[in-house]
Design a protein around this nucleic acid. Sequence first.
RNA 1: GGGGCGGUGGCGGAAUGGCAGACGCGGCGGACUUAAAAUCCGCUUCCUCCGGGAGUGUGGGUUCGACUCCCACCCGCCCUACCA
Length: 939
Amino acid sequence: MSKEYNPQQIEKHWQQKWEEDGLYRSVIDTSREKFYFMTMLPYPSGNLHIGHWYAMSPSDARARFLRMKGYNVVFPMGFDAFGLPAENAAIKRKIHPKEWTYSNIDNMRRQLRSMGAMIDWEREAISSDPKYYKWTQWFFVQFFKNRLAYKKESPVDFCPNCNTTLAREQVWGEDRHCERCNTPVIKKNLNQWFFKITDYAEELLDFSAIDWPERVMAMQTNWIGRSEGAHVVFKTERGDEMPVFTTRPDTLWGATFMVMAPEHPLVDALTTAEQRAEVDAYVDMAARASDIEREATDREKTGVFTGAYAINPVNGDRIPIWISDYVLMTYGSGAIMAVPSHDERDFEFALKFGLPIIPVIDRIDGLAKSFVVNGSVKDGFDKALSDAGIAADKDKDGNIRVTLDTAQIDEYVALVEKHLQSGFWVEIVGGRWLFIFEDGVVPFNGVEADQAILARCKSLEPGVAENRTLMEMLAGQPFYQEALFHHEYGAMINSAKFTGTPGDAAKSTVTEWLEEQGIGHGAINYRLRDWLISRQRYWGAPIPMIHCPECGIVAVPEEELPVLLPDDVEFMPTGESPLKLHPTWRHVTCPQCGGPAERETDTMDTFMCSSWYQYRYLSPNCDFYPFDPEEGAYWLPVDQYTGGIEHATMHLLYTRFFTKAMRDCGVFDQIEPADPEHQPASIFDEPMTRLYNQGIILGEDREKMSKSRGNVIDPDDLVSKYGADTVRAYLMFAFKWDQGGPWDSQGIQGPIRFLNDVWNLVTAPQPGDGGSKAADNDVRALRRKTHQTILRVTRDIDEFSFNTAIAALMELKNTMQDYRSTPVAHTEAWDEAIRSLLLMLAPFTPHIAEELWAFIGEEYSIHQQAWPAAIEELAEEESITLIVQVNGKVRDRIVVPANIGEDEAKTRSLASENVQKHLGGKAPRKVIVVPGKLVNIVG
RNA sequence: GGGGCGGUGGCGGAAUGGCAGACGCGGCGGACUUAAAAUCCGCUUCCUCCGGGAGUGUGGGUUCGACUCCCACCCGCCCUACCA
């Protein structure tokens, strides 16, 4: 062995040896408890970047730790090998996607090996292998047979320049442009394959069987977007049914118009001849507009009246039907009842287009306002107000601005009536809606009142002649701003017999009544859409379906799977799928009638491949089933999954759905749970029991790493410079794992020095005097530190706190360096410390640990040793520094035996000179003793 | 707008309600060296009249005692967004 620590040399050596010995081969062993540890598989882009290292090396450390703790751990790896970049490489550089992908995989395997992870390569799965995608296709067929896969026309992202549809992940940036040519994408209706993930919306909201981060569960919950409300059927005057979904059935009496999405199928039929030109122009405009234009929330509302009317089923009101792009065809029924008084978007729309806005829900805050125009009341009004205790002030023009409490309204009305000048009116808005005229008080309580009151106001005040609704008139007064609109759950008002229904009962009361009347029923709506599986792409798993002119859509028989991707294809610069252009591939005979038929040319979304890879890892060569049931019985489910948060609403949702769908298709029926006693019945409801998300490593400039910024850190460079162990140690030491942070090229010095120190500590001869006897105190102190460290490191790895675990090991090393030149270095305690240090280093820095383990003459391999056991008694402190506080401030520190009694601690603290000084001669009022920690004397 | 995460020295980060800043980087001083690197030793939150005082985004609260628990707010990052 050389004297210097040479990581390049020892790392290569041990990697080879481990591989030759099959050290990380994991096989079923029912005598041991299994642990399935999985980290998200990489896309074979060609290079392992620092983010992969950051994700994988701590996972590997924890997997190794569990292995040393006695678990039978499987830690597999694979490649998510289908996907667009391969195809782009083919178009740009004339390399076949297969060639590009597999040479990338070769390189990445080499890089993964350089990490020294405990990967069981015999379980490697590559999603673009026919032996893999045969089963991806098989799943598609199972889903099809179980009515979980269907084909329908749907609007998809489409690049008008490349003349092809784009997958969601191909649409880039804020402005939603095409990844390849930068053209903004548009929506286009195409016939596409979908999976019925929406059938599982409710079950996917239930996380009770899994221990996942709050954050991920929240994101999935929001993504699924469950809302409770009612399904209400409106009818057009012509008699068409126009169902709507609303979360606010209690506001039905305020529905003064309807709005349909421009793509709504009824638009054409409903549009009157008069409105035809305007409607057609608007529909065209909406179709051309990109999503980003349409969905910009801050954009002013646009819309067009169709000329048609619907009947509000609760009150028979005739209400106009409009179209506007703020209503989305993809959510609910694509049409809404608009309640402008209590929905912000409807409010904005109604104000702009002069549609009536009728309040039907009481304010919870009771806020009421009244703006009294200068000259509209007689002198003495302000005095009367202040006498009544009503808050009012005067603006610079002499107008009185009154803010009322609900309880004051009646009194206020009386005062106004008493003081009102002839030819004027005063209104109250918010808490109540009243217009006080000379001849009486008129409530603003419906569409008719709206127009009647407005007409009177116009006759009194020509300045409001332009206004189309009362609300428009009121909105012109800035003082009323926050009083006109609210969306709270207050009591119902202006709602016929339901007026007065309290807010907490309104929704359910109305819903029940709707059911009785047969015009609606309670309903739950989800934001989640079915999963679009189709990709008009070559480099993916072909969808195993056949279109027969006689039989319709027919699945490829299972025994004919896989449907192989043809190799001899030509890639068009437009990106159009080569499968469509292949001379022979798509022509087949129908498996049902034997007549001529055509293959589906769409391939599958790559998220499909990655939804079930945890099952394929179990037996990547299994040819009779997606996975060997025997392996499944032992290893499933995945006990720990690690990866990035960016997959929260995509991959992590898809794979949960997939497992549930597999269960319902009976895929797991073959499996006899290995241990029915200990495996819960729900093991096949969820794919991964526990999830942990690591953070992101930023560049040194604190920005996201990217080639264009030039701030990318290349792990290959680091490994050749410092060795894999150092890189692993640094990545685990420098950040909280779930937080991530900026790379610091100086910071890696810490782990470099640490590993060098460890190396020297073990290999260099101890300079200490072996002749004289070590002091018992020192020996006990070293053992104490050793066992304290074992306790800390064990707990820290358990909690994914890798940074503090390594800090603890550094402390142990520091302590050992202090004892190195003392006689302690020649004791059993020293050897124990060395062995413990190496064993605890093994998960983090597996190569140097193995090398030094061999150096001290221990048995190969360190990775097959048991995790060191801490002896609690040895870890206990003998003496402590007792903190003595006076009124919470530290006034003294006394070294005392750790087991000091309360009384003794109290006595010794009070004896302190400094304590007495700060007590200033007074007797303490109270003394708090925290055993083993501190004494707080309250003066 | 909604949801989530976070805010502690120059930096990364530690702290079962009990000494704030473990461990490390960087910096400063010293040793070794012709010199530099490496290495080793010491110091390193701020203010200070050297007694102490202040300090974990801000303001309150609970407590003998709060980075930690409660309330209100400010700032940053991430996700999501006309979802009826």
